[in-house]
Amino acid sequence: MVSDFVLLALVGFCAQLVDGALGMAFGLISTSALLALGLPPAHASAAAHTAELATTAVSGMSHLAHGNVDRRLLVRLALAGAAGGSLGAFVLSNVDGSAIRPFVAAYLLVMGGLILLRVARSARGTDVSPAGAAPLGLVGGFLDAIGGGGWGPMVTSTLIGSGHAPRKVIGSVNTSEFFVTGAVSATFFGQLGGAHLWSVAGLIAGGVLAAPLAGYLVKRVRPEPLMVAVGIIISLLALRELAAAFSIF
Rank of each mutant, 00 (worst) to 15 (best):
V104Y: 06
M111F: 01
A44H: 03
V58A: 11
L237T: 10
S172R: 05
L109E: 02
V69F: 08
L136A: 02
V208A: 08
G23C: 01
V110E: 01
V69G: 01
D19V: 11
F178V: 03
S98H: 14
T55F: 06
A21N: 08
P102A: 09
G148S: 05
R71P: 13
A15H: 08
A25V: 07
L114Q: 06
V58E: 04
L39W: 02
I232R: 09
G149C: 01
D96A: 13
L17Y: 07
S3H: 09
F189I: 15
H43N: 14
L17F: 10
P225I: 04
S86Q: 12
L28M: 14
G215D: 02
V69M: 06
F188Y: 15
A9F: 07
A36R: 09
I248Y: 07
P130F: 05
L35D: 02
M154L: 15
A44C: 05
T126P: 02
K219N: 15
D144K: 00
S30Q: 03
A214N: 04
W198L: 14
S93W: 00
A183V: 11
L37Q: 12
G141H: 10
L39N: 05
G81F: 13
I170W: 02
A131E: 10
G60E: 14
F90I: 13
A205R: 06
M227I: 04
A201H: 03
A210E: 08
G150P: 13
L242Y: 02
A99C: 05
A48F: 05
G20L: 09
V155N: 10
A133R: 07
G27S: 06
P130D: 07
A195Q: 15
A145G: 04
L203R: 06
V169M: 03
G231K: 12
P225A: 03
R222F: 02
T181H: 07
R101D: 09
A238R: 03
F188A: 07
F189A: 15
M24F: 13
A25S: 15
L136T: 10
V119D: 06
G88M: 07
A131C: 06
K219L: 00
S3M: 14
T158P: 07
P153R: 07
G88C: 05
L108R: 05
F26R: 07
